[in-house]
Design a protein around this nucleic acid. Structure first.
Lengths: 131, 131
DNA sequence: TGATGTTGACGAAGTCCTTCGTAGATTGCC
DNA sequence: GGCAATCTACGAAGGACTTCGTCAACATCA
Protein backbone atom coordinates (compact mmCIF):
# COMPACT_ATOMS: atom_id res chain seq x y z
CA UNK A 1 0.00 0.00 0.00
CA UNK A 2 1.59 3.22 -1.09
CA UNK A 3 1.51 6.18 1.26
CA UNK A 4 -0.14 9.38 0.15
CA UNK A 5 2.76 11.53 1.33
CA UNK A 6 5.58 11.75 -1.18
CA UNK A 7 8.25 10.95 1.40
CA UNK A 8 10.84 13.55 0.67
CA UNK A 9 13.37 12.37 3.17
CA UNK A 10 14.99 9.09 2.23
CA UNK A 11 17.15 7.46 4.88
CA UNK A 12 20.84 6.88 4.44
CA UNK A 13 20.54 3.46 2.90
CA UNK A 14 17.73 4.64 0.70
CA UNK A 15 19.90 7.47 -0.55
CA UNK A 16 22.54 5.05 -1.70
CA UNK A 17 19.98 3.24 -3.80
CA UNK A 18 18.44 6.43 -5.11
CA UNK A 19 21.85 7.61 -6.14
CA UNK A 20 22.35 4.58 -8.34
CA UNK A 21 18.93 4.95 -9.88
CA UNK A 22 19.40 8.66 -10.48
CA UNK A 23 22.46 7.80 -12.49
CA UNK A 24 20.96 4.98 -14.48
CA UNK A 25 17.51 6.53 -14.92
CA UNK A 26 15.93 3.09 -14.61
CA UNK A 27 17.27 0.00 -12.92
CA UNK A 28 16.41 -3.51 -11.86
CA UNK A 29 17.22 -4.85 -8.44
CA UNK A 30 20.17 -6.61 -9.96
CA UNK A 31 21.46 -3.40 -11.49
CA UNK A 32 21.41 -1.65 -8.17
CA UNK A 33 22.81 -4.63 -6.35
CA UNK A 34 25.77 -4.94 -8.67
CA UNK A 35 26.51 -1.25 -8.49
CA UNK A 36 26.40 -1.09 -4.72
CA UNK A 37 28.34 -4.32 -4.32
CA UNK A 38 31.39 -2.64 -5.77
CA UNK A 39 31.51 -0.24 -2.85
CA UNK A 40 30.12 -2.26 0.03
CA UNK A 41 29.08 -5.73 1.02
CA UNK A 42 25.34 -6.00 0.83
CA UNK A 43 22.93 -8.83 0.15
CA UNK A 44 20.80 -9.07 -2.93
CA UNK A 45 17.62 -9.45 -0.91
CA UNK A 46 18.60 -6.51 1.22
CA UNK A 47 18.61 -4.31 -1.85
CA UNK A 48 15.34 -5.82 -2.96
CA UNK A 49 13.74 -5.22 0.40
CA UNK A 50 14.78 -1.60 0.38
CA UNK A 51 13.46 -1.07 -3.09
CA UNK A 52 10.15 -2.59 -2.08
CA UNK A 53 9.95 -0.37 0.97
CA UNK A 54 10.89 2.64 -1.09
CA UNK A 55 8.17 1.79 -3.55
CA UNK A 56 5.69 1.63 -0.68
CA UNK A 57 6.92 4.98 0.59
CA UNK A 58 6.52 6.54 -2.79
CA UNK A 59 10.20 7.10 -3.44
CA UNK A 60 10.28 4.68 -6.35
CA UNK A 61 7.82 3.44 -8.92
CA UNK A 62 8.13 0.16 -10.71
CA UNK A 63 6.91 -1.57 -13.77
CA UNK A 64 5.67 -4.99 -12.75
CA UNK A 65 4.69 -5.87 -16.28
CA UNK A 66 8.20 -6.61 -17.45
CA UNK A 67 9.86 -9.48 -15.77
CA UNK A 68 12.92 -8.31 -14.13
CA UNK A 69 10.87 -5.44 -12.70
CA UNK A 70 12.17 -2.04 -13.60
CA UNK A 71 12.31 0.73 -11.05
CA UNK A 72 12.47 4.48 -11.51
CA UNK A 73 12.69 7.35 -9.07
CA UNK A 74 9.21 8.64 -8.36
CA UNK A 75 10.40 12.21 -8.11
CA UNK A 76 13.14 14.13 -9.82
CA UNK A 77 16.54 14.04 -8.17
CA UNK A 78 16.49 17.76 -7.63
CA UNK A 79 13.27 17.66 -5.69
CA UNK A 80 14.52 14.99 -3.34
CA UNK A 81 17.81 16.76 -2.85
CA UNK A 82 15.96 19.89 -1.95
CA UNK A 83 13.89 18.02 0.58
CA UNK A 84 17.06 16.78 2.22
CA UNK A 85 18.62 20.19 2.10
CA UNK A 86 15.61 21.82 3.65
CA UNK A 87 15.66 19.24 6.37
CA UNK A 88 19.30 19.95 7.14
CA UNK A 89 18.65 23.65 6.99
CA UNK A 90 15.86 23.42 9.52
CA UNK A 91 17.83 21.10 11.70
CA UNK A 92 21.13 22.74 12.03
CA UNK A 93 21.29 26.04 10.22
CA UNK A 94 18.27 27.84 11.63
CA UNK A 95 16.86 27.98 8.14
CA UNK A 96 19.61 30.22 6.81
CA UNK A 97 20.81 28.95 3.41
CA UNK A 98 23.53 31.57 3.37
CA UNK A 99 25.26 30.05 6.36
CA UNK A 100 24.97 26.63 4.86
CA UNK A 101 26.40 27.75 1.55
CA UNK A 102 29.33 29.43 3.20
CA UNK A 103 30.09 26.33 5.20
CA UNK A 104 29.79 24.12 2.17
CA UNK A 105 32.12 26.28 0.18
CA UNK A 106 34.79 26.58 2.85
CA UNK A 107 34.58 22.90 3.54
CA UNK A 108 35.96 21.61 0.34
CA UNK A 109 37.59 23.09 -2.68
CA UNK A 110 35.17 23.46 -5.53
CA UNK A 111 36.29 23.33 -9.13
CA UNK A 112 36.73 26.60 -11.03
CA UNK A 113 33.85 25.56 -13.25
CA UNK A 114 31.61 25.18 -10.25
CA UNK A 115 32.71 28.53 -8.90
CA UNK A 116 31.88 30.19 -12.19
CA UNK A 117 28.51 28.58 -12.24
CA UNK A 118 27.76 29.74 -8.76
CA UNK A 119 28.77 33.27 -9.71
CA UNK A 120 26.45 33.19 -12.65
CA UNK A 121 23.63 32.06 -10.44
CA UNK A 122 24.30 34.82 -7.97
CA UNK A 123 24.14 37.35 -10.77
CA UNK A 124 20.85 35.98 -11.93
CA UNK A 125 19.43 36.03 -8.46
CA UNK A 126 20.38 39.61 -7.96
CA UNK A 127 19.05 40.63 -11.36
CA UNK A 128 15.84 38.78 -10.69
CA UNK A 129 15.23 40.49 -7.39
CA UNK A 130 15.78 43.96 -8.92
CA UNK A 131 12.29 44.36 -10.10
CA UNK B 1 30.99 6.10 29.82
CA UNK B 2 31.88 8.50 27.06
CA UNK B 3 32.65 7.17 23.62
CA UNK B 4 36.02 7.84 22.07
CA UNK B 5 34.59 8.97 18.75
CA UNK B 6 33.44 12.56 18.78
CA UNK B 7 30.07 11.73 17.23
CA UNK B 8 29.81 14.27 14.50
CA UNK B 9 26.34 13.36 13.40
CA UNK B 10 23.66 14.29 15.88
CA UNK B 11 20.21 12.93 15.20
CA UNK B 12 17.23 15.13 14.54
CA UNK B 13 16.15 15.43 18.14
CA UNK B 14 19.72 15.98 19.22
CA UNK B 15 20.04 18.81 16.74
CA UNK B 16 17.13 20.63 18.28
CA UNK B 17 18.83 20.53 21.65
CA UNK B 18 22.20 21.50 20.23
CA UNK B 19 20.61 24.43 18.52
CA UNK B 20 19.37 25.81 21.83
CA UNK B 21 22.72 25.29 23.48
CA UNK B 22 24.58 26.87 20.57
CA UNK B 23 22.51 29.96 21.13
CA UNK B 24 22.82 30.11 24.88
CA UNK B 25 26.44 28.96 25.08
CA UNK B 26 25.64 27.06 28.28
CA UNK B 27 22.33 25.72 29.51
CA UNK B 28 20.71 23.59 32.15
CA UNK B 29 18.17 20.94 31.35
CA UNK B 30 15.51 23.36 32.43
CA UNK B 31 16.79 26.05 30.09
CA UNK B 32 16.62 23.71 27.13
CA UNK B 33 13.28 22.32 28.16
CA UNK B 34 11.68 25.72 28.45
CA UNK B 35 13.05 26.82 25.12
CA UNK B 36 11.91 23.74 23.26
CA UNK B 37 8.53 23.70 24.98
CA UNK B 38 7.62 26.92 23.23
CA UNK B 39 7.82 25.18 19.89
CA UNK B 40 6.74 21.62 20.63
CA UNK B 41 5.30 19.46 23.36
CA UNK B 42 8.07 17.52 25.01
CA UNK B 43 8.59 16.12 28.47
CA UNK B 44 11.18 17.40 30.87
CA UNK B 45 12.67 13.98 31.39
CA UNK B 46 12.81 13.47 27.65
CA UNK B 47 15.07 16.46 27.32
CA UNK B 48 17.12 15.26 30.25
CA UNK B 49 17.49 11.83 28.76
CA UNK B 50 18.66 13.22 25.47
CA UNK B 51 21.19 15.44 27.13
CA UNK B 52 22.53 12.50 29.10
CA UNK B 53 22.80 10.43 25.96
CA UNK B 54 24.45 13.27 24.14
CA UNK B 55 26.95 13.61 26.95
CA UNK B 56 27.72 9.92 26.64
CA UNK B 57 28.15 10.32 22.90
CA UNK B 58 30.52 13.20 23.37
CA UNK B 59 28.24 15.84 21.88
CA UNK B 60 27.91 17.69 25.17
CA UNK B 61 30.02 18.15 28.26
CA UNK B 62 28.63 19.04 31.63
CA UNK B 63 29.69 20.46 34.93
CA UNK B 64 28.43 18.16 37.64
CA UNK B 65 29.93 20.29 40.38
CA UNK B 66 27.26 22.95 40.27
CA UNK B 67 23.83 21.82 41.20
CA UNK B 68 21.59 22.45 38.36
CA UNK B 69 24.18 20.84 36.12
CA UNK B 70 25.38 23.05 33.33
CA UNK B 71 25.86 21.69 29.83
CA UNK B 72 27.95 23.01 26.95
CA UNK B 73 28.47 21.82 23.40
CA UNK B 74 31.57 19.65 23.27
CA UNK B 75 32.52 20.89 19.83
CA UNK B 76 32.08 24.19 18.07
CA UNK B 77 28.89 24.66 16.15
CA UNK B 78 30.75 25.02 12.89
CA UNK B 79 32.44 21.68 13.24
CA UNK B 80 29.20 19.87 13.85
CA UNK B 81 27.50 21.65 10.99
CA UNK B 82 30.29 20.57 8.70
CA UNK B 83 29.91 17.01 9.83
CA UNK B 84 26.26 17.12 8.92
CA UNK B 85 26.98 18.80 5.63
CA UNK B 86 29.57 16.25 4.70
CA UNK B 87 27.14 13.50 5.51
CA UNK B 88 24.50 15.02 3.27
CA UNK B 89 27.06 15.57 0.57
CA UNK B 90 28.14 11.97 0.62
CA UNK B 91 24.59 10.77 0.78
CA UNK B 92 22.86 12.67 -1.91
CA UNK B 93 25.19 14.90 -3.81
CA UNK B 94 27.94 12.51 -4.79
CA UNK B 95 30.36 14.58 -2.79
CA UNK B 96 30.00 17.61 -5.02
CA UNK B 97 29.64 20.74 -2.90
CA UNK B 98 29.00 22.78 -6.03
CA UNK B 99 25.77 20.96 -6.77
CA UNK B 100 24.68 21.31 -3.20
CA UNK B 101 25.43 25.02 -3.17
CA UNK B 102 23.53 25.57 -6.38
CA UNK B 103 20.52 23.76 -5.01
CA UNK B 104 20.66 25.61 -1.75
CA UNK B 105 20.81 28.93 -3.53
CA UNK B 106 17.99 28.23 -5.95
CA UNK B 107 15.88 26.84 -3.18
CA UNK B 108 15.36 29.96 -1.25
CA UNK B 109 16.11 33.58 -1.86
CA UNK B 110 19.18 34.70 0.04
CA UNK B 111 19.60 38.22 1.23
CA UNK B 112 21.78 40.61 -0.81
CA UNK B 113 24.22 40.71 2.07
CA UNK B 114 24.54 36.95 1.98
CA UNK B 115 25.03 37.04 -1.76
CA UNK B 116 27.81 39.57 -1.41
CA UNK B 117 29.47 37.51 1.23
CA UNK B 118 29.33 34.44 -0.94
CA UNK B 119 30.85 36.39 -3.84
CA UNK B 120 33.67 37.52 -1.64
CA UNK B 121 34.32 33.99 -0.58
CA UNK B 122 34.36 32.80 -4.17
CA UNK B 123 36.94 35.46 -5.00
CA UNK B 124 39.12 34.34 -2.15
CA UNK B 125 38.86 30.75 -3.14
CA UNK B 126 39.87 31.47 -6.69
CA UNK B 127 42.74 33.67 -5.57
CA UNK B 128 43.88 30.99 -3.18
CA UNK B 129 43.91 28.29 -5.80
CA UNK B 130 45.99 30.38 -8.22
CA UNK B 131 49.34 29.07 -7.08
C1' DT C 1 14.27 19.00 60.60
C1' DG C 2 10.77 17.80 57.76
C1' DA C 3 7.56 19.03 53.79
C1' DT C 4 7.80 20.47 49.19
C1' DG C 5 9.47 21.18 44.86
C1' DT C 6 13.34 20.52 41.62
C1' DT C 7 16.83 17.72 39.49
C1' DG C 8 19.02 13.38 38.01
C1' DA C 9 19.48 8.26 37.04
C1' DC C 10 17.46 4.26 35.26
C1' DG C 11 14.74 1.37 32.76
C1' DA C 12 11.48 0.31 29.42
C1' DA C 13 8.26 0.61 25.51
C1' DG C 14 7.31 1.67 20.79
C1' DT C 15 8.76 2.85 16.36
C1' DC C 16 11.85 3.06 12.53
C1' DC C 17 16.10 1.48 10.05
C1' DT C 18 18.92 -2.10 8.34
C1' DT C 19 19.89 -6.59 7.25
C1' DC C 20 18.96 -11.33 5.91
C1' DG C 21 17.09 -16.20 5.51
C1' DT C 22 13.78 -18.82 3.53
C1' DA C 23 10.61 -20.03 0.38
C1' DG C 24 7.45 -19.29 -3.43
C1' DA C 25 6.96 -17.53 -8.37
C1' DT C 26 8.75 -16.86 -12.94
C1' DT C 27 11.69 -17.52 -16.90
C1' DG C 28 14.69 -19.82 -20.19
C1' DC C 29 16.40 -23.80 -22.05
C1' DC C 30 16.85 -28.87 -23.34
C1' DG D 1 7.18 -30.56 -19.78
C1' DG D 2 10.88 -30.37 -16.49
C1' DC D 3 15.10 -28.40 -14.37
C1' DA D 4 18.09 -24.81 -13.11
C1' DA D 5 18.71 -20.15 -12.47
C1' DT D 6 16.82 -15.94 -11.36
C1' DC D 7 13.52 -12.91 -9.26
C1' DT D 8 10.06 -11.64 -5.76
C1' DA D 9 7.57 -11.76 -1.36
C1' DC D 10 7.37 -12.38 3.44
C1' DG D 11 8.80 -12.39 7.92
C1' DA D 12 11.87 -11.67 11.48
C1' DA D 13 15.88 -10.18 14.21
C1' DG D 14 18.90 -6.71 16.02
C1' DG D 15 20.01 -2.06 16.74
C1' DA D 16 19.23 2.85 16.97
C1' DC D 17 16.01 6.71 17.98
C1' DT D 18 12.47 8.80 20.61
C1' DT D 19 9.69 9.24 24.40
C1' DC D 20 8.25 8.68 29.18
C1' DG D 21 7.25 6.95 33.94
C1' DT D 22 9.14 6.14 38.25
C1' DC D 23 11.89 6.81 41.91
C1' DA D 24 15.95 8.50 44.32
C1' DA D 25 18.92 12.54 45.49
C1' DC D 26 19.15 17.18 46.57
C1' DA D 27 17.93 21.99 47.95
C1' DT D 28 15.05 25.22 50.41
C1' DC D 29 12.77 27.46 53.81
C1' DA D 30 9.44 27.77 57.47
Amino acid sequence: MASKEPALRPTEAECKILDVIWNKKTATVRDVFEDLSQRQTIGHTTVLKFMQIMTDKGLLVRDTAVRPQVYRAARPKQETQQGLLRSLLDRAFRGSPGDLVLQALTMQRSSPEEIDEIRKLLDEMEAGSHK
